[in-house]
Every structure is written in C-alpha cells, then in structure tokens.
C-alpha cells in the first residue's frame, strides 16, 4: 500500500501539481483498464467511487455512473477486490457514502481497504462531529480519511477539519453537487486561501473542475485538483480507457505547463 500523504507531500515539494482523477468503480466492463490508463497518463493518485443508491453529493453524471455500476452488480467487496489487483502504481482513495461503510461495519471496511492496498477514503456525509467511530478504525488500519472544507465552512471549523484530515484537504470549489462547470468563481480561491491559513497539508480542489485550463487556473492557488464528472462523462459516452487516458494526459500537460 502506498500511504497517501507522504507521497503527495513529496511530489508537492518537488514542485509538481497534483492530479487526482475520479471514476466510479464498476461503472463499465473495462473500468479497471480505464483506471490503469488514467494512472499511467499522469495521475498522482486516483479516487474510485463505491456506488450508493442515494448519492446526495453527486450531480447527474456521477449518479448515472453509480446506477450503471449497481445495475452491473457492483458491491463494495467487488470494487475493493478489483482494486487489490489493479497494480496502479499510485495511491488509491475510495469515495463512498456513510451507509455503505456503516452497513459493512467500520472496522471491517477499514481493514478490507487496508488489505486491498487502498490507503485513503472520502466519505462526504460524515461530518466532523460524527467522524470518530469511523476515523478511529481508519487510523488503526492506516487508511487516511480525507475531509472536505466547503465555501460555507466558518473559520474556526476550517481549522478543526484541517487538523483531522489525513492525506490531503479536499477543498470544495463551490456550493453544490459534483458536475462540470463553465467557470469557477472567487469562492474557490477564497476557500483555498482559508485552508492554507491553517494547514501545510496538500490542498486539492474538487467539485466542478472540468477542463485543463480550469485545472491550471485552480493550481495557481491550490496544490492539485480532483477531476470527476468530466472524466466519468467521457467514459459514459463510450470513450473507454483510451479516451480516459488521453483526457488525463491533457490535464497533466496543462498542470505541468503552468
């Protein structure tokens, strides 16, 4: 297992901007190949969704990917099992919703991630106040729990979230759900600035980052970007691993040029 935080910090120190593509586990026959293509095309880590029937944080594109995955019989065990043998060469974070974790059991989920070499988890509907039952087991299994800071998060809370976040701090670019956006506003810069003020951990911006030029613009203030819907849409449109790899290559090039 590659531990997420030291790996990302090392790359930041080397002056590299971080690229964390997201795709939904089980969303198509060739999702593991797509993930491998994405990893090979310049991702610094990958984020993999474990589908949930009621994804509150997600817009239409990722919702649809989740429906496909569930229709194809994706389960937490199958997605995590596939990750165990995917040989990606970069750290993996899973993203899912709390009921999936709660149903499996905190300890069982944390240990199964650990056993599969998954070094991090993002569970957006566990707020700071409710985190401990999960985070204690995740810490024990050395699975990093990445926490989100939103544009609406008030100042003292930002510091508390950053202190408890592991791996990196996930800056939510805008109020709303996942999905591609034409432009990102001041609130993105502002949330990154407020996170920076209280932590030296890597800060990656996600939710709405859709194009190479947006990724580059965001990385003028942030350490990296998470790109989900824009990649998932290409896969839903039948692009396959090649198109996924090509898109991630474009993102990489834009970040390296910046």
């Amino acid at each position: 297992m590659i531990a997420l935080e030291p790996w990302l910090r090392e790359r930041c120190r080397a002056g590299r901007k971080l690229l964390v593509p997201y795709l939904m586990g089980g969303m198509g026959e060739d999702w593991v190949e797509a993930l491998q293509a994405v990893a090979a095309a310049g991702a610094d880590a990958v984020e993999v969704g474990i589908p949930f029937s009621d994804p509150m944080m997600d817009g239409p594109v990722i919702q649809q990917a989740g429906v496909h995955a569930l229709d194809r019989g994706a389960t937490p065990a199958r997605v995590v099992g596939a990750l165990a043998s995917a040989e990606l060469g970069v750290p993996v974070a899973v993203m899912t919703y709390y009921n999936v974790v709660f149903r499996a059991g905190h300890r069982r989920m944390a240990q199964s991630l650990r056993a599969a070499g998954v070094g991090a988890a993002i569970v957006p509907d566990i707020p700071l106040e409710e985190l401990e039952p999960w985070a204690a087991e995740a810490d024990a299994a050395e699975v990093a729990t990445v926490l989100l800071v939103a544009p609406s998060t008030p100042e003292p809370r930002v510091a508390r979230i950053c202190a408890r976040s592991r791996g990196f701090v996930y800056a939510v670019a805008r109020m709303g759900v996942t999905g591609e956006r034409e432009s990102l506003g001041n609130e993105t810069t502002e949330v990154v600035r407020r996170i920076r003020a209280v932590t030296d951990a890597p800060v990656c911006v996600g939710v709405g980052v859709s194009t190479p030029s947006q990724a580059r613009a965001v990385c003028e203030v942030a350490d990296g970007v998470v790109v989900g819907s824009a990649l998932v849409r290409r896969l839903l449109e039948g692009g396959g691993p090649d198109a996924a790899g090509e898109f991630v290559g474009q993102l990489r090039a834009a970040l390296d040029a910046g």
Binding site: P127, E129, L147, A150, P151, S152, R157, V172
Partner: peptide, 10 residues
C-alpha cells in the same frame, strides 16, 4: 444526528 456533507453543516 446530522449526516450531511460539509457544505450543508453550516
């Protein structure tokens, strides 16, 4: 409890 994404907690 209050199991919502951070954006909605405030």
């Amino acid at each position: 409890g209050r199991f919502v994404p951070e954006s909605l907690v405030p």
